Measured scan of single mutants.
Amino acid sequence: RTVKALYDYKAKRSDELSFCRGALIHNVSKEPGGWWKGDYGTRIQQYFPSNYVEDI
Rank of each mutant, 00 (worst) to 15 (best):
Y9T: 01
Y7E: 11
H26K: 09
I44Y: 11
Q45Y: 03
G41Y: 04
T2A: 08
D15M: 15
A23D: 15
S50C: 10
I25A: 03
K37P: 04
G41I: 04
G38A: 02
A5P: 00
Y52K: 11
T2F: 03
E16Q: 10
H26S: 14
S14D: 12
Q46M: 14
N51K: 12
D8T: 15
K4G: 02
V28M: 00
Y40D: 03
Q46T: 06
W36C: 11
E54D: 07
D8L: 03
L24I: 11
R1V: 15
G38W: 02
F19R: 00
Q46W: 06
E31A: 11
V53S: 04
F48L: 05
K10V: 15
G33M: 05
W35R: 15
Y40F: 14
E54Y: 06
N51V: 11
L24G: 02
Y47I: 04
N27H: 05
W36D: 04
N51H: 15
D55A: 11
A5S: 05
D8P: 10
N27G: 03
G22W: 02
E54I: 06
D39N: 06
Q46A: 14
E31C: 12
R21S: 08
P32W: 06
V53E: 01
C20P: 15
Y9L: 01
C20Q: 11
D15W: 07
S50I: 08
S50K: 15
K12I: 06
D55F: 09
L17F: 05
A5K: 00
D39G: 02
D15P: 01
Y7Q: 15
L17W: 01
Q45T: 04
K37V: 09
D55W: 10
Y7P: 03
T2P: 04
I44L: 11
R43Y: 09
E16L: 05
G34I: 11
Y40Q: 07
T2Y: 10
S14G: 13
G34S: 11
K10Y: 11
S14K: 10
W36R: 03
S18E: 14
K37G: 01
K12H: 15
K37L: 08
G33E: 08
G34E: 12
G38V: 02
Y9H: 10
D8V: 00
D55R: 07
A11V: 00
G34V: 13
N27V: 00
P32M: 15
Y47V: 07
K37Q: 06
A23L: 02
Y47S: 07
C20A: 14
E54W: 04
P32L: 13
W36S: 15
V53M: 03
D15Y: 08
Y40A: 07
K12T: 11
K10W: 07
N27A: 04
A23W: 02
S18G: 03
L6N: 08
K12Q: 12
T42L: 10
G34Y: 10
T2W: 01
W35S: 08
P32C: 08
E16M: 04
E16V: 04
A5F: 01
K4A: 08
L17P: 02
G22P: 03
L24V: 13
G22H: 03
L6T: 10
K4L: 10
N27P: 02
E54G: 08
E16T: 05
Y7V: 09
F19C: 04
W35K: 04
Q46K: 12
W36E: 02
Y7F: 15
D39E: 02
K12F: 04
A11D: 00
Y47A: 10
F19L: 02
G41R: 09
L17K: 01
E31F: 14
P32I: 15
Y52M: 14
W35E: 09
Y52R: 07
T42Y: 06
G22V: 01
Y9A: 00
R13A: 10
Y7L: 12
S14Y: 07
D55K: 10
F48I: 03
Y52C: 12
L6F: 05
Q46H: 14
K37M: 04
W35C: 05
R43L: 11
S18C: 05
G38R: 00
Y7S: 11
W35L: 12
F48W: 02
R43F: 06
G38L: 00
N51G: 13
N51Q: 11
R1I: 11
Y7C: 11
V28N: 03
W35Q: 08
S50N: 08
E31R: 10
K12A: 10
D15E: 14
V3A: 05
Q45A: 07
K10M: 06
W36Y: 06
L24H: 07
A5C: 08
V28C: 04
R21M: 07
V3C: 08
G22S: 03
A23M: 05
S14L: 10
N51C: 15
A11N: 06
K12S: 08
A23I: 04
E31D: 09
D15T: 15
L17V: 06
I25P: 01
T2S: 12
L24C: 13
K10P: 05
Y47G: 04
Q45S: 05
D39W: 02
L17N: 06
H26C: 12
P32R: 10
Q45P: 03
G33T: 05
L17T: 02
G34K: 14
R1M: 12
G38K: 00
G34M: 11
E31W: 14
L6G: 03
Y7R: 15
H26E: 13
G41D: 15
G33A: 04
K37E: 03
G22M: 05
R13Q: 07
W36Q: 02
K4T: 07
G41A: 08
W36I: 04
Y40R: 05
I44G: 02
L17S: 04
A11G: 11
I44H: 14
I44E: 11
S14E: 09
W35D: 06
I44K: 13
K4M: 11
R13G: 07
A23C: 12
G38S: 00
G22Y: 02
D55N: 13
V28A: 01
L24Q: 08
A11R: 03
R43W: 10
T42W: 10
H26D: 10
Y9F: 03
I44V: 14
V53N: 00
T42C: 09
N51F: 06
S18K: 01
N27R: 04
H26P: 00
Y9M: 00
T2Q: 12
A5Q: 02
W35N: 11
F48R: 00
E54T: 08
F48S: 01
G41F: 05
L24D: 02
T2C: 07
K30D: 09
R13N: 07
Y40M: 07
D15C: 10
N27M: 03
G34C: 08
L6M: 10
K4D: 02
Q46E: 03
L24W: 06
D8G: 12
N51D: 14
Y47T: 11
A5V: 00
L6I: 15
K10S: 13
E31V: 11
Y52S: 07
E31P: 07
K30T: 08
G22C: 02
H26T: 14
T2N: 04
Y52F: 14
C20K: 13
D15G: 13
D15N: 13
L24N: 09
